[in-house]
Design a protein around this nucleic acid. Structure first.
Lengths: 105, 105
DNA sequence: CGTATAGTTGGATGCATGTCAAACAGTTAG
DNA sequence: CTAACTGTTTGACATGCATCCAACTATACG
């Protein structure tokens, strides 16, 4: 099991998080992670409508912004929401975004 | 008094709002509007550290995303937060962002 | 009318981003 | 070992964006 570089909780920047969440594809991924917990990249990226390399790019954005955790296990990579870290740093932010993301168009 | 085009409340898109809030300059402007209410563009743009045309660009981003209201009066333009509209559409979002924006680095 | 004020617009520039395709790398299975 | 699987990296491309400067518009003031 290998860990990838992630920003420390106190280094998570609000503007970076907001930018990470401001893409429809990434918002969809975050919604899935919130609903289902830890998933592999392929599961999270299923039916996203983008190429797998594009999805990989989005995972990196989310990780570098401090929104998700990644850990490699064998040939699979598991990603999960850093919910506690985000709640500690920006209380209520993630919940309001997730609620808003479920709203009807 | 002239009104400029703004998106209707139900047309405000979450990703657009998040993108609008993901810039440090715009976040600063929104914080000022939240603290002081309606202000002119020059007041809101005071000491932002950017050229007035850059500030004007940011106001347009915020307006088109549905974050602020603009109304022209004479040669001054007043901008204000669309707090009620944002609260109605995305409950808790604006408050959590404003709270987060006040956090120490 | 002429001048000052408040903002916008257009051009230019450099940087970031979203996307795909193809090649690559690491891991597991037969 | 060979082949399949999982995901990343690189290149290419188009787009968008933050920024400044200069010119412009519109309004107000003398």
């Amino acid at each position: 099991m290998r860990l990838l570089p992630h920003p420390a909780t106190e280094d998570i920047q609000l503007t970076e998080v907001l930018k990470a969440l401001s893409d429809p594809v990434r918002l969809l991924v975050v919604g899935r992670l919130a609903a289902h917990g830890e998933m592999t990249c392929s599961t999270a990226g299923d039916d996203l409508g983008v190429h797998k390399s594009t999805a990989s790019h989005h995972y990196r954005m989310l990780r570098e912004a401090g929104v998700i955790m990644s850990k490699q296990e064998g040939r699979k990579k598991y990603i999960s929401l850093r919910r506690d870290d985000l709640d500690a740093r920006f209380p209520g932010l993630l919940d309001s975004v997730l609620t808003a993301a479920h709203e009807p168009v």
